[in-house]
Amino acid sequence: MSTPAASATLAASLSTEDANIVARASVWSKLARHWGVRIGGAAMLLLTLIALAAPLLGTVDPTLFDPGSRDLLPGAQGEITTLEGESIKHEFMMGSDSFGRDIYSRVIYGTRVSLIVGLACALVSVFLGVLAGLSAGYLRWLDMPLMRVMDGIMAIPGILIAIALVALWKASLLSVIVAIAIPEIPRVTRLVRSLVLSIREEPYVEAAVSLGTSTFKIMFGHILPNTAAPLIVQGTYICASAILTEAILSFLGVGLPTDFPTWGNIMAEGRVQFQQFPHNVFFPGIFLAVTVLAVNVLGDGLRDVLDPKMAKKV
């Protein structure tokens, strides 16, 4: 018999009542077989290794400069002065900037900043968003006021919040992370709230209610585990957009201090002489674009595997 609710597709309706006990491939093996997850994951792994092993990759301290090695082209030999004042020979694989700093070293060390900012923003905003979303979805009295505040935050374009906050605070890694994470919180909150509202209508949650399971246990035992997949996916996208936003802040000169090796800072410094030395912008630009692309591809893959319903939506 078919119900009004079950308007399954033709092919799906072919599974017979007692013969469809088909073992479902485990999530892990599905993930391992998805090309997006493979490529995005491998790229992220590589970038993480680069970030961790930055000092071993033929780099020098990214803040070192040498007035004698200014504006070198990629591959040029030159000299650089260490912190001890000693002058050492160095190959400028990606050239140097107008202070005589090694672009290659700065780009490699820049990986660290981007990955830390991306990961931290994703964790902070997902954590706070889950708290707010669970509260709004389960405590009815809190729903209205909390969601109105979230609407307010959402009404201000995220990048403007980030710019204003960083401008007001002293720019540091922590303040940049918080400033970028705050505008992401409402989106996570909304997602969690809507998931909670729909999952709590599921018969299995109602069954738990009549089994005498406490509200707290229902929330963390039945509802939260079923929000995990969309949250992981959302977290990946937040990571990608946070990396981009951090780069934009630095590029506009309102992010981390300019001697900090971030891709945005390198490009901000390079843009002045862009017409003569475009590589000062392009090298960090390529790293930035590839990193964000890797995170996004990974996110799309995770979404395809973990959350096929959402995969159909966007």
Partner: peptide, 19 residues
């Protein structure tokens, strides 16, 4: 809550009734 034990319910949709 202590009384819930005494009334139990089976729903229509077998596909959504189990977590």
């Amino acid at each position: 809550r202590p009384l819930r034990r005494r009334v139990q319910i089976v729903f229509q949709d077998p596909y959504r009734s189990l977590n």
